[in-house]
Design a protein around this nucleic acid. Structure first.
Lengths: 208, 208
DNA sequence: TAAATAATAGATCATCTGATCAATAAGGTT
DNA sequence: AACCTTATTGATCAGATGATCTATTATTTA
């Protein structure tokens, strides 16, 4: 910031004139971690500084800040809910326990990520419709079928309700919240904790 | 905002000159819901507008915005963790199940509240030390003793770990997150869902 | 090598935002 | 009723912020 006049500042590469597609990609990826760090109220100047470009350049690729945030959402929400999971979860050729464990192993690997977790929370607090859509989708496409699978498999009279599925889900997701939102220590690998949570849940419906 | 000159605007009471203590209290309470709504980046002008006072008046009671936020934290974090709970939870003259259920009935009543839930989340995302202190306190003063009570009561060889307690806790807290952060529909009264979650948990350690 | 293209930087604008301060007036006191 | 204290207001400042526009200059093309 001091010797900006020198041709090659100490650490900043001072590279310029990237192909537009690549620059745009660089901006979006930088914006994702930037807004994940500081929140959606982060300034375009700080974002530009972090990217090593000028603030005005941002507006050459996006007509306003809201458009940058849209690109961030798109980049972050993309492929977070695989279309395979509903089929996989209802594929009764595998034991239900294995299906659930495989799902949550995959799912937690995808969402226990700093950028996702925080941008999801920031936009949730901002009241973004996107969050409700995502959760509604999660509920109808994954958790609801999961409930039906449990009803089909449970031997006893005790059957889970939808709210119980949300409880199972929430207990697992809470690991990611503790880690990335509250920045508390959590198990490095959550797999075992998830496995025990799932087994407690299944066990209580006679699905040990 | 249009006819501010008229002596008594249509709806605004245009009252002035409250006793300082009362005005301060009014500001803090207004600030709590204001910042819970819009986030900690909400402007002092919007806050003043909501309170029906001028922006400059805020700085007569607080020397800067950070001081307002401190008062908000203090007001919101106050008495959220009762000192009675540790004693109550370890009082073996009552059945463990009743102790846990009573605790979570009380606790959920206290924290499943719009202002608390959102300010806790906003400040957590902002990296506030206060959140980590709160959660650390919760862990050592409530959840850890709870774990020990479970170890003392569980008949079988299977014993919960601390991470399992966090899972129980997270699953319950997640109801409040869904309601107040994601603004999704949740059971009006979470008591039954909590009861079932606790029973699943206890059952899996032979404490049915 | 010279010209053309367009990615990037720098300057600038209008508005917003936290904060200050002198002027005003509400409510109590005598 | 006149006075006094001080809660409250209105004007204002400096810096921050989103956005625009023109000047540069890296890279390609002829």
């Amino acid at each position: 910031m001091t010797d900006r006049a020198t041709q090659t500042p100490p650490d900043a590469p001072e590279r310029r004139r990237l192909p537009p597609a690549e620059r745009r990609r660089q901006i979006v990826e930088g914006a994702v971690t930037f807004f994940a760090d500081v929140g959606l109220d982060g300034t375009t100047r700080d974002l530009a500084r972090r990217l090593g470009i000028t603030q005005s350049l941002l507006f050459n690729y996006f007509s306003n800040k809201a458009e940058i945030l849209e690109a961030v959402y798109e980049h972050v929400y993309l492929d977070r809910l695989s279309d395979d999971w509903p089929h996989f979860l209802t594929d009764r050729s595998h034991p239900l326990r294995a299906r659930i464990l495989t799902f949550y192993r995959e799912y937690s690997r995808l969402i226990f990520e700093y950028n996702w977790m925080r941008i999801f929370m920031f936009s949730g607090l901002a009241g973004a419709e996107l969050n409700r859509r995502y959760l509604h989708h999660l509920g109808t496409v994954i958790l609801r079928p999961l409930l039906e699978e449990l009803h089909a498999s449970a031997p006893g009279p005790a059957l889970p309700q939808m709210e119980d599925i949300w409880n199972l889900h929430g207990g697992i997701v809470y690991i990611g919240i503790r880690r990335h939102i509250y920045q508390m220590p959590t198990p490095e690998d959550p797999t075992e904790a998830i496995e025990r949570a799932v087994d407690r849940f299944l066990g209580s419906y006679g699905l040990g």
